[in-house]
Design a binder for these strands. Structure first.
Lengths: 137, 137
DNA sequence: CTTAAAGATCATATTAACATGATAATAACA
DNA sequence: TGTTATTATCATGTTAATATGATCTTTAAG
């Protein structure tokens, strides 16, 4: 569903959210804890920082942390830079211009499902996925 | 959502379903009509034939056609050889062992959405997407 | 039995995603 | 002010998906 890059981003953000006490957290620690290639993750976290999802500090005692409370951070925000999640380009058959007005063969049936996916990413927050958080259906 | 290979497969199967009169249809015709690279499509259709989705005949007047009525052909069947659609490996965070018993942070929330996607591919048939077919929600 | 039209197959090229390694820039602190 | 720990950046390598081109095999028709 997600590219491995987006998956790394999401896992790392979740890790930072769950380690809010020990902020900021070093790339190396996150990479080791999650089994993600270090320099690759470094680049990903840097991009998240440029997007305003994380804040970073260099030098001794530097590292990364969430820039905003996890309740205010949707999964879509974390992931959208890396994957086009069911936003706009949601045509199952890859048509550039597939819409209600110009529907492909699969449009109406797929739209219902596709919107559920979008909604999940748009409305689920990092706080919803933090360990120790009550999970309600 | 789908890889371009799976998308090609689906488009081609739909094309064959919609041209049942002129069977069998040549690879070149399908490729040209859909804007898909010819030899690449040839390989894809060959794989679909090996899976029993299509039947192929060589030589003059050869080509491809559906091996079964479109009502009996699910999108999952068409696509599963090329993409792992929400079957098994459905963990959003890519955990190899994510299940109800060993749930990742996203498991329960994602499961509901993921199952809708699976169901769509499993239960929608090629007939449902054919042109001229009534579309009911 | 030859020929032409079709799919089947093989070798290779291209591209983007994923990953690694080396070096530069920055900040804390002795 | 120099040393060290950290992120930032750049150059390069690897791999899988996508794509192309050439050739082989099969079959219908003349």
């Amino acid at each position: 569903m997600l590219s491995s890059t987006a998956e790394y981003a999401l896992k790392a953000v979740l890790y930072l959210a769950n380690h809010a006490e020990e902020q900021p957290v070093r790339v190396g620690d996150v990479a080791e804890a999650l089994g993600i290639p270090r320099n690759y993750l470094s680049k990903i976290l840097h991009e998240l920082a440029r997007d305003g999802v994380l804040s970073s500090s260099r030098g001794k005692h530097g590292g990364f942390q969430l820039a905003h409370p996890p309740e205010e951070l949707s999964l879509l925000t974390v992931v959208q830079r890396f994957d086009r999640i069911a936003e706009e380009r949601s045509c199952l058959l890859g048509r550039p211009q597939c819409s209600d007005r110009h529907a492909c063969a699969a449009h109406w049936r797929w739209k219902a499902v596709s919107e559920q996916v979008s909604t999940f990413f748009r409305e689920t927050t990092v706080a919803d996925l933090m360990t120790g958080t009550a999970i309600a259906a």
